[in-house]
Design a protein around this nucleic acid. Structure first.
Lengths: 252, 252
DNA sequence: CGGGTTCTTGACTAGTTTCAAGCAAAGTGG
DNA sequence: CCACTTTGCTTGAAACTAGTCAAGAACCCG
């Protein structure tokens, strides 16, 4: 099966051996739920970094859960201006909007090589009628996505460029931490400064200068794609607030 | 029953006589669904303009649907900077996040005198297990809310102040139109310029000047609280794109 | 070892906020 | 019924923030 720019994975990770299940902070499935999800997942997809596998204006036949890698949701204006809306990490769901509404109103691009679990939208109704608990989880995930964008909107609308930059880095770091990607307060960051600029709603040059200013504070280091939080309290101070740890979350 | 700053309504509109049901563009209920929703709605609430009936940091025991009036969702920073996230009109649902997650991460304020249908979160599980179709609708509403914020984020992050202002006015006008509040391309607009500024992520002064510039184009008029779209094509031209008409939507 | 992408920097320009002040309309209370 | 207060709107000037342009350095990949 070929979907978008991705290709079906040689491997297929069975849901009962799902590596994400090991993670703390994820709600456990009952045996029935697990059996259903195993059948709900019809494929596994690999997408190259840089490829958009969901596109604004199209309707997707599939829902995805990130199994491995980073992706980002974005929208573009006609003249090429791009706004990155949010990032997706392992256990995050993508494409729900496209499954529910007429068509996608944003696109999604792989930031790193991506592995996705593929669920056909045709079976979504089955899920809702047979597993209200899973339906609840999906709604939960949609509500959480909304929360993240709300926070982002507050940042872009009302925080200064320095606060905003500090907050974004802290936010991304905290989410990476949840995903177990952080070791010794450091992490391999897949972003270019252009990604950050398009997320922060600032120009590339100004992002670069703001980042430099932030580095001067010695709260963080970012060199050669490795990002390190040296002094989290100081970073939170600059951002204006820390990112609260999250309660356990569902995933499908 | 007293909730927040509101008070229980003397009247209680029964769901089978719901005035919103008359509106085109809303999905019809089956008899079973209607019977359930009638029982799901336990109260009707009136809130004064200016009162926040849902607050960041609290957990709400209720879900609401707007029956009459305007409200807005917002977040604030410690020092008082405010970002308005989105507006709610009749048939929009509020408080879902608070019902699903630990606590609200935004507040909601009545922009005009508001009438709300009140649903206890305790019965939400009932809805999910007995009426998958309604569960689906709730997820749909959550996904649509996300879409609106995505668009808003694109605006604030990447549109110029003039485009952004034009787009917001067009967006609000289009939604008011869907709600049947527009007559002769004109409508009673409940916003102050401060509301618009806090929505657009701009200062009050700059909002005022941008608005003035927009009026100069003669595409819109806004005087004494009455907003009128004189030349929609011209307004859409300034905004960069028109707001597409929406497909029929569910509501509860 | 090229050639492309990403990062960095300075100089200049445009956009936005802040400050300050005045005005108009609406609401309040003696 | 009329001062008086409050709220919202408007405007100009000055200060600051952010964007654009341009060019060179650093890095990465085949």
């Amino acid at each position: 099966m070929i979907v978008g720019q991705g290709r079906s994975n040689g491997q297929f990770t069975p849901c009962d051996l799902c590596p994400l299940r090991q993670r703390r902070g994820l709600r456990a499935f009952t045996a029935d739920e697990l059996a259903f999800v195993k059948e709900f997942k019809t494929d596994e997809l690999r997408v190259d970094a840089g490829a958009s596998f969901l596109r604004e204006g199209t309707r997707s036949e599939y829902l995805y859960t990130v199994l491995h890698g980073w992706a980002f949701r974005y929208k573009m204006l006609d003249d090429g201006r791009r706004q990155i809306l949010n990032y997706a990490l392992p256990a995050d769901m993508l494409g729900l909007q496209g499954a529910l509404m007429r068509e996608m109103e944003h696109s999604v691009e792989a930031l790193t090589p991506l592995t996705l679990c593929v669920f056909p939208r045709a079976k979504l109704w089955d899920l809702y009628s047979r597993f209200p608990s899973l339906a609840f989880d999906i709604t939960w995930l949609a509500a959480r996505e909304e929360q993240l964008i709300d926070e982002h909107l507050l940042s872009i609308g009302r925080r200064t460029s320095l606060e905003r930059t500090a907050f974004l880095l802290l936010h991304l770091f905290a989410r990476a931490e949840e995903s177990g990607l952080v070791k010794d307060n450091a992490i391999q960051f897949p972003f270019t400064q252009q990604h950050l600029a398009d997320t922060l709603g600032m120009s590339l040059v100004h992002t670069n200068k703001t980042l430099k200013r932030l580095m001067l504070s010695r709260a963080v280091r970012w060199k050669d794609r490795v990002f390190e939080v040296v002094d989290r309290a100081a970073l939170a101070e600059i951002a204006g607030e820390d990112v609260a740890p999250r309660a356990p979350r569902p995933f499908i």
